[in-house]
Design a protein around this nucleic acid. Structure first.
Lengths: 226, 226
DNA sequence: AGGCCAGGTAAAAGCCCGTAAAAACAGTGC
DNA sequence: GCACTGTTTTTACGGGCTTTTACCTGGCCT
């Protein structure tokens, strides 16, 4: 089943959780401090990470920030009962869920499965993203259209990757700007539109003559799911 | 802020939670049994529903099943500590999250916000919506009428999608505006009417000569269920 | 019957988006 | 430092989509 990375400095508790998850069908790897945890999370080997908020050295929040800076790997936060603020902040920062400690292993497993089922977001950077005639290899930053390599600039690739990861759903322009350009969308900023125009030209139309990227008026853009 | 429907037979507890949520900026409506709760959930007036699992009459699970049969409204389940099985089943059935009881109101609010932030993404984009001669593929933003592709503008598609998801029930103009145009209905705003006029022209009449979208005087519009 | 108001629809007005082209920026080699 | 090259952002304009306006029809009420 899915590969889980468990980052928690409490060796005993982590071991116990890992045992339970393994019996439940998960493949579990342990990291006992934030530093090595972040590194492992970015290795691209895991489908999801479980991250303890309270840790010596880098806090869980900081670890999450560093993971999010480079990856969309799903992350579930473990928090001690009571630190609600941290919970909210955790989700603001882009955690996918949190579970209060002490937690029932069974509950943890259920939430892991729920996140994995929700799926798509599984940004395993090693994997290839395929949507209809488009295929992307984020690890090599290469794009193929109908099997042919396409020359994209760096920004164009970023944009296309975000859209492809959310294929079939509308992505707001602000999110596109945030994730592909790394800055919030300013008023009168037309960069996204211009880049999308060039992407469309480089890719060409679908079989039915439509563009593979649809405009959703006033909301954003949507890549057509295969 | 967001309109929350709270379905719980425990009047006292529900009232307390409602108070907290209101102070937190939510608009809260209460339902004290499954039957009326399901009905309210399908009214299209709410952004999210909170549903107690343990209820006399229809159980929370059954209520969820009936909501899911007709709608993708986000639902958060309230479960008593211990019934893990129900939790898992709850998520399998398409709940968006669950919170164990007794719960901190603050935690409930945080989770509600997290789901709402996740936003529209809840609508299962792979599914195809079919209502009589109409079929919609939200993932590709395509519409077919009697098997023929129909060219719709972005807003027209949004409107039709909302109506089709609630086929057989009246949708208030204000909800249509909110969901398809992303803004509340203003006085003297005729946009919805105008868009509906063009949709009707593009689709044409049903076999019996009526429009597939009926006007419900002073209330809204309703798509005729197959 | 007549007035009032919601809704149907054509047409005008206004705004958003597509896109070419210019300007600004970043990197490279000399 | 400077010219050269490739990329990103800004600018500008035209076209299309949305919204507003206006006029008309028809239901509902007194």
């Amino acid at each position: 089943m899915a590969a889980v990375l468990l980052i928690d400095d409490d060796v005993e508790l982590a071991g116990m959780l890992a045992d339970y998850l393994r019996r439940d069908g998960f493949t579990v790897t342990l990291a006992h401090d934030g530093e090595s945890g972040v590194q492992a999370a970015l290795s691209g080997q895991f489908a999801i990470a479980v991250l303890d908020v309270m840790m010596p050295g880098i806090s869980g929040i900081e670890a999450l920030r560093r993971i999010r800076a480079a990856s969309r790997l799903p992350v579930l936060m473990l928090t001690a009962r009571g630190d609600d603020m941290d919970r909210i902040v955790g989700l603001e920062l882009g955690a996918d869920d949190y579970v209060p400690k002490p937690c029932l292993p069974r509950e943890l497993a259920a939430r892991l499965r729920a996140i994995l089922r929700r799926g798509v977001a599984n940004a395993d950077p090693q994997a290839e993203i395929a949507v209809g005639p488009l295929s992307l290899q984020p690890a090599q930053r290469r794009a193929y259209w109908r099997g042919q390599a396409v020359e994209l600039t760096s920004t164009e690739f970023n944009l296309l990757e975000v859209l492809a990861r959310h294929a079939g759903r509308t992505v707001a322009k602000d999110d596109l700007s945030q994730q592909a350009l790394g800055r919030p969308l300013a008023r009168y900023d037309r960069s996204i539109d211009v880049h999308l125009s060039s992407i469309r030209q480089k890719l060409g139309p679908l079989d039915d003559g439509r563009s593979p990227i649809q405009t959703v008026f006033r909301q954003g853009y949507q890549m057509i799911a295969c």
